Simulated scan of single mutants.
Amino acid sequence: MLIKVLGSAAGGGFPQWNCNCSNCQGVRNGTMPTSARTQSSIAVSDDGHEWVLCNVSPDICHQIAATPELIKHDVLRGTAIGSIILTDSQIDHCAGLLNLREGCPHQVWCTSEVHDDLTSGFPIFTMLKHWNGGLVHHAIRPNDAFSVAVCSALKFTAIPLLSNAPPYSQYRGRPLPGHNVALFIEDTRSGKRLLYAPGLGEPDATLLEYMYQADCLLIDGTLWHDNELAATGVGSHTGKDMGHLALAEEQGLITLLSTLPAQRKILIHINNTNPILDESSAQRQALTEKGIEVSWDGMRIDL
């Protein structure tokens, strides 16, 4: 299994276009050892030729341009993206579908809850019907394994997460099990397994079982502290409000990751305020000492 990290930042990217926090200023003026990042998305493949796109960020056109594997050079118009899977209906994970309208129809796999949000509060499916049939929905049932139109050696399972529905969902504050899922991806030839969870509010027993089985965790690294937005002066929401488990809390993600046997533990969906973006920071050093990696745009993972 091949994994390409197309975007490793949380919503707004890094630097965030309207933010002058110390991190964003540091990357803009080159005074902080780091790299710019686009909004979170990955692509997976079983052969390196056909790919499954997992989430479609608003930065998708730039991400495709920066990823030669996704460009087909032997056709007048086309792409190596054969299927799309959405883990939720958040803007930073699905708004990029609008930028892919010229390539419609696209085969899109998501839960009924995500599909409902994307035909009502944020009706991307409805809007894109006007472009060559738009988006073809394939329903995902949580906890049931499925395969997609390409990459037949890969088996996917959507695992419900304790998180939140987006602000435009009628279920904001009271999400259903299908509003947020992690993807457990198994290569049926090698037996290697990836858990992809860019949003993670609170792990339950079911998710923990899959986390213990994974050879590689590509997992939510949004915030260092739960009150980080308030502490940096850029907002009032906590990580828990937004459906993210912070890294450094007493029962935070670092504590959890330290108990898991995965060969690689990699953070994705990193907010622009998170101090781990500074490669010289004490927080980044603490992660390195625990064997936890921080993803970057263009990162390739071979399983």
Rank of each mutant, 00 (worst) to 15 (best):
D59Y: 07
E113M: 08
E102M: 10
K72G: 03
H93Y: 12
C104S: 05
E69W: 06
D116Y: 15
N55C: 06
S89G: 11
V108H: 13
D92Q: 14
E50M: 10
A95D: 13
V75M: 09
A95M: 12
I91T: 13
S57M: 04
H115V: 06
A66F: 00
G96M: 12
C110M: 15
L53V: 08
H49C: 12
A80Y: 00
P58M: 03
Q63R: 04
Q107K: 15
A66T: 00
R77A: 14
C94D: 08
A66H: 01
H106C: 02
L100K: 03
C61L: 15
I84D: 06
N99V: 05
I84H: 01
H93P: 12
W51R: 00
I85Q: 08
S112P: 08
I85M: 04
H115K: 15
D88M: 01
G96T: 07
L97E: 13
H73T: 00
S83M: 06
H115F: 13
H93V: 09
C94L: 05
H93A: 01
N99Y: 14
Q90L: 11
G96E: 10
N99D: 15
A66G: 01
S83H: 10
R101T: 10
N55S: 14
E69S: 09
D59G: 05
W51E: 00
W51M: 01
Q107V: 00
E50Y: 02
Q63C: 10
R77T: 05
S83L: 04
H49Q: 07
I71C: 00
Q107T: 05
W109L: 11
T111E: 08
I60A: 06
H62N: 14
V52Q: 03
S112E: 10
C110T: 12
V56M: 03
P58F: 03
L53Y: 02
H49S: 15
S83F: 03
A80W: 00
L98R: 14
W109C: 10
I64G: 01
C61M: 15
Q63M: 08
L53Q: 04
N55F: 05
I85T: 07
C110A: 07
C104V: 09
D88H: 05
G78L: 02
V108W: 13
S83R: 04
V108D: 05
I85A: 04
I64K: 07
S57K: 03
I81H: 04
D116I: 07
P58R: 02
V114R: 04
W51L: 02
P105I: 01
V114F: 05
G82T: 11
R101L: 09
N99I: 07
I71S: 02
P105H: 03
L97W: 03
P105Q: 03
K72A: 08
I64H: 02
L70C: 09
H93M: 06
I60P: 11
S89C: 04
T111Y: 09
E50L: 01
H62D: 15
E113N: 03
G78M: 02
C61E: 11
G82P: 00
D74T: 07
H73V: 01
D116L: 13
H73K: 02
S89E: 12
I84N: 12
W109T: 10
G82E: 13
A66S: 06
G96F: 09
